[in-house]
Every structure is written in structure tokens, then in C-alpha cells.
């Protein structure tokens, strides 16, 4: 990584240009599909599913969110299933900035973190000054994690350095809160763009890189996540910093979640199999995973109404 001689140094566009590895879409899709072929059975299945629960950012990002709805989500995150199944709590609850205080109050010292989307989620199309205010406010209200969005328009217009600067400024505004950078890969569209955006986000200060807002289709896919995991791998070897990964949106079944875990295990290894470095952003995934856990323990499937809605 380039270190600049003094703060007085004026970086040129060329100097700030991130050199990113090329991505071949045929082979990356083929490789991603191979992870889903792993057959996860019995003990591996149940431990994998519990791990997935512990990595879940239980999310509600609706215009109609209220304190009442947040209570449902928080309670579900703290205790997803009755204690005899020994299911761990979720990693975090992900909400809009206005509901951070409410979520914080419900979650208390349960260990479940509060993540707040910010920076004019989901588009990011607001002046930086206002976006930073929003971040500061969410952090001040008690958000442990900030899920920012990059300005995709800026990125696609080729102003990569400005995107990087916005991320860096947001990181600073976060203070102690962890920063997840949402690339909105469904709008970046090419794997080369995903790779470049991942690289610049990590360099600019992301603690996590995240695929999607959930408001755009396609959201998280296996190949896109793989490209990002590979970027994380290269960044780790280059700098020694372990960046986290959060696929979000579109992951609805337990089977999909296990395939993602296989991908993490075989791309980044054991160190990343922890909620500190891998999260699922999802709103409906949790109950399918719980259903599979109960099936594995009890031997038969329970109806959907036996699982409380978040």
C-alpha cells in the first residue's frame, strides 16, 4: 500500500487509482456453484446452522417500522428458539437510525449488537456533510455498527477516489462503531466493479464489506460474495488486516446459508468462521434455519406457525 510522505502531499488521480485483480465471470460462477455441492449432514449440519444463527444480523428496514416492530425483532434476536435447543443469539439487529435508541433499550446488555444503516440509505445520494451527521447521530444514539452505502453513481462515473474519501470520512465519523460498507453489487453489476469497490472500501477503512441494501435485485449471490471474499483474502495477505464479510438480501433458506459458510470456510479458512468476521444480513432466513435445527433434533419438520415471527 502506498504511504504518503506528508499530509501536505497532494495525491493525483493516478496515485489513488486502486489496482484491482481481474475477475473471470465464467470461472468465478463455476467455483461458487461448487460450494453448494458440498453435502452437509448430521453433526456438521446442526453446528453449521447454529453458527449461521450466531452470524445473523436480524434486519428490519421498512418505512413502517415502529418501536413495536423493533421489540419483536430484538426479542427474536436475543433468543431465537427455546433454550433446550441451545441456539445462540443472533449477532445484531439492523435498523434505521431513528430506531437505534429503541433497539438499544430492548437489547440492553444481552450482547446482541445494534447495527444502523446510514449515509442516506439505500441510495447514498445526499451531500456528504449530511451523511456524516447521520452517522454521528446513529453512533451517538448507541449504534455499535454502521452500515453505510457507497454512492454508486459516483463509482460508476469513475470517481473512485471520491468514493474512497467518503468511506474514509464515514469511518472517522463512526468513532468506536464498526463500519460496514455496502457496495450494492446489484447496481455495480460486473464482477470487476465488485472487486474494485471491495478493494477501495477496505483501503479506505471498512471493517466489513457488505453486498447489498436488500432494496435492489439481485442482492447477495454466491459468485459476488466469492469475489468479495477473494478481495478480503488478498487484502489480508497484503496488509495483515482481517476484513469481515456480510452478504445481505436474497439468502432465504438454511441450505443457502450452509453453502455460504462452506464458501467462507474454503476461501478464508477457520479464522473467518465467527460473527466477528462474517454476517448474514437477512429478515426471513432465521426461521428456515431454526426449522432445520428442530428437524435435525426431533427428526421431523414442524409447521411454520411453530416458529415465532421476528
Amino acid at each position: 500500500m502506498k504511504t504518503l510522505a506528508s499530509p501536505a502531499h497532494r495525491a493525483t488521480a493516478e496515485e489513488r487509482q486502486v489496482q484491482s485483480a481481474a475477475v473471470d465471470h465464467v470461472m468465478v460462477e463455476e467455483r461458487a456453484a461448487a460450494f453448494a455441492k458440498r453435502s452437509i449432514k448430521t453433526s456438521a449440519k446442526i453446528s453449521g446452522l447454529k453458527l449461521a444463527i450466531s452470524m445473523m444480523d436480524l434486519t428490519t428496514l421498512e418505512g413502517k417500522d415502529t418501536p413495536g416492530k423493533i421489540a419483536f425483532v430484538c426479542r427474536k434476536a436475543m433468543q431465537p428458539l427455546e433454550p433446550r435447543y441451545e441456539v445462540p443469539p443472533c449477532a445484531a439487529v439492523c435498523v434505521y437510525p431513528n430506531l437505534v435508541r429503541v433497539a438499544k433499550k430492548f437489547l440492553g446488555d444481552s450482547g446482541v449488537k445494534v447495527a444502523s444503516v446510514a449515509t442516506a440509505f439505500p441510495t447514498g445520494l445526499m451531500p456528504l456533510r449530511l451523511k456524516l451527521q447521520e452517522v454521528k447521530s446513529a453512533a451517538h444514539d448507541g449504534a455499535d455498527e454502521i452500515d453505510m452505502v457507497i454512492d454508486r453513481g459516483m463509482f460508476l462515473a469513475g470517481q473512485h477516489d471520491r468514493v474512497a474519501d467518503e468511506i474514509a470520512a464515514t469511518k472517522k465519523a463512526c468513532g468506536a462503531a464498526h463500519l460496514k460498507v455496502i457496495l450494492e453489487t446489484g447496481e455495480l453489476q460486473t464482477y470487476d466493479n465488485v472487486r474494485r469497490a471491495s478493494d477501495l472500501a477496505m483501503r479506505a477503512g471498512a471493517d466489513f464489506i457488505k453486498t447489498s441494501t436488500g432494496k435492489i435485485s439481485p442482492a447477495a449471490t454466491m459468485p459476488v460474495t466469492l469475489v468479495m471474499l477473494e478481495a478480503i483474502r488478498d487484502y489480508f495477505y497484503e496488509t495483515g488486516v482481517r476484513i469481515g464479510m456480510k452478504p445481505a438480501g436474497g439468502i432465504r433458506s438454511a441450505k443457502q446459508a450452509l453453502a455460504y459458510l462452506v464458501m467462507v470456510k474454503e476461501t478464508l479458512g477457520d479464522d473467518w468462521l465467527t460473527p466477528d468476521l462474517f454476517r448474514f444480513g437477512a429478515s426471513t432466513l432465521v426461521n428456515d434455519v431454526l426449522r432445520q435445527i428442530v428437524k435435525t433434533v426431533e427428526g421431523n419438520y414442524q409447521g411454520e406457525d411453530y416458529f415465532s415471527l421476528p
Binding site: K171, K172, R203
Partner: peptide, 18 residues
Amino acid sequence: PVLARSEKSLNGTRPTVP
């Protein structure tokens, strides 16, 4: 160059493996 400043300050917040 905001990025250049932030790289320095990042060292404290993100642990580095030698």
C-alpha cells in the same frame, strides 16, 4: 486527500497480523 489521513488513523482500529 482524506484517504491519506485516514490510513494512518486506521492503524489503531483494525488489528494487524505481522
